[in-house]
């Protein structure tokens, strides 16, 4: 309880140090994350890459206070939140310091609320007057390239790409320091992919720290400054997107890159992939 006063200018938006997370009752306790350390600066975009069961969703849930950490610390916008109880976490989430966008935007959006209601809700619960909220959400629509005429629609009347952009706008209205997106493009077709990636790129200038979670390095490599590779609960490699793609060190990163289909021939051939798989399973 010593140092949770927010400093004036935090150098990092999110600082995770030596994080351990366990699941399950004592007898069958399993470790989901082991010694994970990751720092994201304001305006920086980090791609968090891992396969099913690697712990990437657990990491996101821990940063949102939905799963307790068993060791290590989490500092959000200069505020040490590691020892926060349920109530303080809830208050923190209500302030919208950290926001999360689900892979399936239908899960982030209430199907019975119009776009306008969905976008205003996070502001109204914080006590922002209705008229002011209406003005503020319009400013955010522009950031995600949506027009005002969509405000009266229900999520069901939007295309997949529009829904995803509404979900991003809803996360942005509380001016979060950290925005975590789970598989931001994997459910979208090419045209919408490119559009969402462009929108995310532009958020950098606003100082939002972005964490893009994906199983597919290729889908976020184009907009991420840095890549962190999570494998079996551990960060096995972290580096600039360029270094990770052109000079991967860990066998899993090499397998990941060697597996990603590319237009002009795979960087690794079948035999190389087999050798890497054998190495990892040894």
């Amino acid at each position: 309880m010593s140092s949770n006063t927010p400093s004036d200018k935090p150098s990092s938006a999110l600082e995770i140090s030596d994080l351990d997370v366990h699941y399950g009752p004592r007898r069958r306790r399993r470790q989901a994350l082991r010694g994970v350390s990751l720092t994201v600066a304001p305006g920086e975009t980090v791609g968090l890459i891992g396969e099913t069961g690697s712990g990437k969703s657990t990491l996101a849930r821990t940063v949102l206070g939905l799963v307790p950490a068993t060791a290590g610390s989490i500092v959000v916008g200069g505020e040490d939140v590691t020892t926060y109880g349920r109530r303080r976490w809830r208050a923190l989430r209500r302030r919208g310091v950290v926001q999360y966008v689900f892979q399936d935007p239908l899960r982030s959006l209430d199907p019975d609320l119009t776009v306008e209601e969905s976008l205003s809700e996070p502001l109204l619960v914080r006590g922002v007057p209705r008229a002011e909220a209406a003005g503020r959400i319009r400013a955010h629509l522009d950031r995600v390239r949506l027009t005002e005429e969509l405000l009266g629609r229900l999520p069901g009347a939007l295309s997949g790409g529009q829904r995803q952009r509404v979900a991003v706008a809803r996360a942005l209205v509380t001016e979060p320091r950290v925005l975590i997106l789970d598989e931001p493009v994997s459910a979208l077709d090419s045209a919408n992919r490119v559009q969402i990636l462009e929108i995310l790129k532009n958020l950098r200038a606003d100082g939002v720290a972005l964490v893009l979670i994906s199983h597919d390095l290729g889908s976020v490599a184009g907009v991420a400054d840095r890549i962190a590779v999570l494998y079996r609960g551990e960060l096995v490699e972290t580096g600039t997107a360029h270094d990770i793609v052109t000079n991967p060190q860990h066998p899993y990163t090499r397998l990941l890159l060697g597996s990603a289909p590319t237009l002009h021939g795979a960087p690794a051939d079948r035999a190389e992939r087999q050798a890497l798989r054998a190495l990892l399973h040894a």
Binding site: S190, V194, L217, G218, S219, G222, V223, T246, H264
Partner: peptide
């Protein structure tokens, strides 16, 4: 062209020199 651009501008191909076939 859009399908190709998605890989060349936003995907891994961005980091690799275009291979001549």
């Amino acid at each position: 062209r859009l399908l190709i651009a998605e890989h060349e501008q936003y995907g891994l191909e961005r980091f690799r020199p275009a291979k001549e076939h």
